[in-house]
């Protein structure tokens, strides 16, 4: 095994552990921190089914963002839908045989990368052009956008410009999953692509990418509006009742 292959194998195991362990820890933390009061932003659904439907609309359509700002919605939606299709298309590297719908998505995923990068570019432009957004942007906001664009462009370089050895890459990727390690093709775009992806995985649980688990735990969106019918009591709040009736 070449040093290069060994480095990437090591990098990916580290990155995977940080991503999965970090996210699991965050989810645990969010799930175990009590929400002592009923604070859904009303009008809110009065049933659990209703709340699920509200959450579905938030995650799939970015409903609140749509109400809020059409430009951010357009760019954000292009980016996320593009990203979702690209990621689905990537499933083929990790399985053999490939599910038929992953096969079916291949041509769409290819062009979705354009939407993804265009959306990212639009979001980035806002950080320079809109004075309010410029005011709130931190260096990390710019860097995350740069990182995603670089991942997108290096991927597109392989898709549209200089193809890499997909068969060998697939063997490498499957090897990672099955612990049967195979050499990594040493193409520059691929090495860049994979390095940046590992970086993204590592920063995921310690950055604003926590909006992904966060959206599901947001009390203003995931609570049922039924406080007159149902008493909710956090453990630390229940303790107050014992002390002073």
């Amino acid at each position: 095994m070449s040093a290069l292959t060994a480095f990437y194998i090591g990098l990916y195991y580290v990155a995977a552990i940080i991503l999965i362990g970090g996210l699991a820890y965050r989810v645990y933390e969010y799930a175990t921190t009590p929400a002592p009061l009923n604070i859904p932003t009303t009008p809110a659904p009065t049933t659990l089914m209703g709340v699920r439907f509200r959450m579905f609309r938030e995650v799939v359509f970015f409903e609140s963002l749509f109400k809020s700002n059409k430009w951010i919605w357009i760019f954000g939606y292009l980016f996320h839908v593009g990203l979702a299709l690209v990621l689905l298309r990537h499933i083929r590297y990790f399985q053999d045989p490939v599910w038929f719908w992953v096969e079916f998505l291949q041509p769409f995923g290819k062009y979705a990368s354009l939407a993804m990068v265009a959306g990212l570019a639009g979001l980035w432009a806002r950080r320079f052009l809109v004075d309010r957004v410029r005011y709130i942007s931190t260096p990390s906001d710019h860097l995350i956008l740069a990182l995603l664009i670089a991942i997108g462009l290096s991927g597109m370089a392989m898709t549209f410009v200089a193809h890499t050895d997909i068969i060998a890459l697939k063997a490498f990727a499957l090897g990672l999953v099955t612990f049967d390690w195979q050499p990594l093709p040493a193409d520059a775009p691929l090495l860049v692509h994979l390095f940046l992806v590992a970086l993204l995985m590592i920063i995921f649980p310690i950055s604003k990418l926590l909006h992904v688990p966060g959206v599901f735990f947001s009390p203003t969106r995931n609570q049922v509006d039924n406080p007159r019918e149902r008493r909710r009591l956090a453990p630390w709040a229940a303790a107050l009742e014992k002390n002073n009736g």
Binding site: R26, E29, Y30, T33, P34, A35, P36, I39, S64, L65, S68, N69, I72, G76, L123, R126, V130, R132, V133, I136, S137, T138, D141, K208, L210, H211, G214, V215, F217, S218, P219, T220, A234, W236
Partner: peptide, 19 residues
Amino acid sequence: KYRSVRVFLDACVHCGACT
């Protein structure tokens, strides 16, 4: 004590929609 504060401090992406 408050999930709201914890999640809100982590989740903001500085998108600017609220500005």
